[in-house]
Amino acid sequence: MLKHLTKVAQIGCLSLFFFLPSRVDAQLMTDQKIRVAGVEREYHLFVPDDHHNAPVVLLFHGHTNSSDELIGLSGKRAPQASFRVWLDIAKKDNVILAIPNGRYVSRREKGWNDCRADAPTNSKADDVLFINKLLDSIVDEYKANPKQVYATGHSNGGHFAIRLAQEIPEKITAFAAISASNAANSECKDANIPVSALVMNGTADRFLPYSGGPMMAKRGDVLSTAGTLHYWIKRNGTDPFAEMDKLPDTTVKDQSRAEKYTYKNGINNTEVVLFRILNGGHTTPSIQVRNRRLLLRILGNQNADIEMADEVWSFFKTKKK
């Protein structure tokens, strides 16, 4: 059973107005807790008024970040702060958002146990069990739609979304990996259940090499973005050739542009989509939430032609088990 109202943040109130979209006026239940295998795990939960048969979207923060930083509760402009746009989407389209916290990998840093066997700084927690139990609780308590469960995250959070599609594919309808790719040295077992996949990677990402290989800071090796796509195209049985859309380059100052490649007609109506962010860095594309200059110097260019959350939701909402 979920423990509610440990702390409640009223979205749109004055104290949070700077960090959260003012159009969201429902309640976000923060610091919720669930005990999994004797360990207390934390998460935030957004539940719309009309939650019966609602879709569920899981949002995962990156390595060293937190669920607070992901949706703007911390007061820090985190690299993936544009995920707070999901709160607007959830209010508008009656979506349940589950925003879990990873386990500590040091005294102050949180992260996820994703598929990278050669990333020694990954958490060792059984995060798949945590999410499995959390989803069961949400479906049971709020009568959410188990056939519309989606997972997305940035960097380590994106890698973990891939792990969920590998290890509990019967529960994940689709996933979106932002600045993330399949592990080259994977500790996860390959599944064969089709799961629609979206990948959104920057070609100038210094942390996650677009062409594959070792990640920065000894965070393990990854497949190239092309290799990652090949895996999901083959697994889902989609068309081998994509429909390509060169998206409008509306913001010259961001020094990047976006292309979209869609592989259709997969098993059980699955699809695979690539957003190729030309000259994009280790960032989440956003029109509404811009990274500070210092972050851009570290992470690289942030595309401003598309809104990551809107593009991912447009992909998710058409997918059903």
Results as ranks from 00 to 15, higher is better:
L2W: 03
K3I: 09
K3Y: 10
L5A: 13
A9S: 07
C13I: 00
S15P: 00
L16Y: 13
L16H: 10
F18A: 14
P21C: 08
S22M: 10
L28V: 06
D31M: 06
Q32W: 00
R35E: 15
A37Y: 05
R41L: 06
R41M: 04
R41Q: 12
F46E: 12
V47P: 09
V47E: 11
H51N: 15
H52R: 10
V56E: 03
V56H: 02
L58N: 11
F60V: 07
H61C: 07
S67E: 10
D68Q: 12
L70W: 06
L73D: 04
G75V: 08
A78Y: 03
I89R: 04
I89Q: 04
A90N: 12
V95W: 06
L97C: 07
L97N: 06
P100M: 02
P100Q: 02
G102M: 06
G102K: 03
R107G: 15
K110F: 03
N113Q: 08
C115I: 02
T121C: 00
N122G: 08
K124M: 05
D127W: 05
V128Y: 11
L129R: 13
F130Y: 13
S137L: 10
I138G: 03
D140C: 02
Y142I: 03
N145C: 12
P146C: 08
K147V: 03
Q148V: 01
H154F: 15
G158Q: 02
H159Y: 12
R163D: 03
L164N: 07
Q166N: 14
P169G: 04
K171M: 09
A174L: 08
F175W: 02
A177K: 01
I178M: 09
S179N: 09
S179R: 01
S179W: 00
S181Q: 15
A183G: 08
A183P: 07
A184I: 00
N185W: 00
N185H: 15
E187Y: 00
C188T: 03
I193N: 02
A197R: 00
M200P: 01
N201T: 04
G202A: 08
T203M: 04
F207D: 07
F207Q: 06
Y210L: 10
S211M: 11
K218Q: 14
R219D: 06
G220A: 02
S224Y: 06
L229I: 12
N236Y: 07
T238F: 11
P240A: 08
F241I: 13
E243A: 11
M244R: 14
D245W: 01
K246P: 00
L247K: 06
D249L: 07
T251S: 12
T251P: 00
V252Q: 13
K253C: 05
Q255H: 15
R257H: 15
R257N: 13
A258W: 02
E259Y: 13
Y261D: 05
T262S: 15
Y263E: 08
Y263C: 10
N265P: 08
I267G: 00
N268E: 13
E271S: 13
V273C: 09
R276N: 11
G280C: 10
H282A: 10
T284Q: 11
T284I: 11
S286R: 08
R292N: 15
R297P: 00
G300R: 01
D305K: 08
D305E: 10
D310Y: 05
V312Q: 01
K317C: 11
